[in-house]
Amino acid sequence: MNAGADIATTTVTMVDALNLALRDSMTEDENVVVFGEDVGVLGGVFRVTSGLTETFGKDRCFDMPIAEAGIMGVAIGMTALGLRPVVEMQFDAFGYPAMEQMFSHLAKLRNRTEGRWPVPIVVRVPYGGGIGAVEHHSDSSEAYFAQTPGLKVYTPATVGDAYTLLREAIAQDDPVIFFEPKRLYWEKAELPVPEAAEAVPGRAVIRREGEDATLITYGPSLSVCLAAAKAAAAEGYDVGVIDLRSVVPFDEGTAADALARTGRGIVVHESAGYCGVGAEITARLTELCFDILEAPIQRVTGRDIPYPPPHLEHHHLPSVSRILDALADIL
């Protein structure tokens, strides 16, 4: 692991950036505790928590029995005495046993107690496919959480955002489901991890300016969208890309401003399209921008099927060619 001082000048992976965010948060606030399955000595199956037990001790970063609902429930109980737990669900689909705790308590305890019992918990979830993994290691479940009032849903698409968004998630008092695109874990960035958090959750960022159409995306689909925009440019189309960075809150202003210029938009994400995040974004932007839209907002998403086996997943995931096809329909 790179030390904080070096990181400004070295290439880091998203895993390194997340690890540093945890370190910096734990150093800053002794109430921050990290736990989950295999996060201690091993450092997590993706090594995001590598070395934290060594640095901060077994009472700050520790392994739990394999009991996701119990892990989530324990985290909630800890907040009564002021701790700020960051828990890891080992894989997207392994987090499902904890959903009752998240939906019935994590999301609702602040409201239930009229602000007297806040639950500042971050649930880190490695998510998404494209890594040739088995059925239960590839899900994108952000829509379930986005549908649950009381939760925030963040997802970084770049190494820099991985650091700043996680720091921000840990520092705030609302519970955050933090989706880490596992196919980007080993992405490297020359980009130094910013010292001060520049990402403001709720504020989308324009990753590429464009005058002809706007791609609206987040997390693992950002790189696909950027590649599609590049391919479209080769064909003479100027396509912009917006990275939402957080699904809840949804920064509709940035997206609507871009649509006001292009009149054409496509929402892109890996999770299922039916009743998905893209459906909400499309509906809201249509309400806001109906008069200026040149074409119906399109969606390029994962198919409405259970996650496919690795040899078939390219048919499921949004791809450059599917995005170009959708652009061809509206341009």
């Binding site: 609902a69 429930g73 109980g77 800890m78 009564a80």
Partner: peptide, 13 residues
């Protein structure tokens, strides 16, 4: 579900 909350509080204590 609250049984786990009790455990969390006890561990925090």
């Amino acid at each position: 579900t609250h049984c786990a909350h009790a455990v969390g509080l006890a561990m925090a204590s």
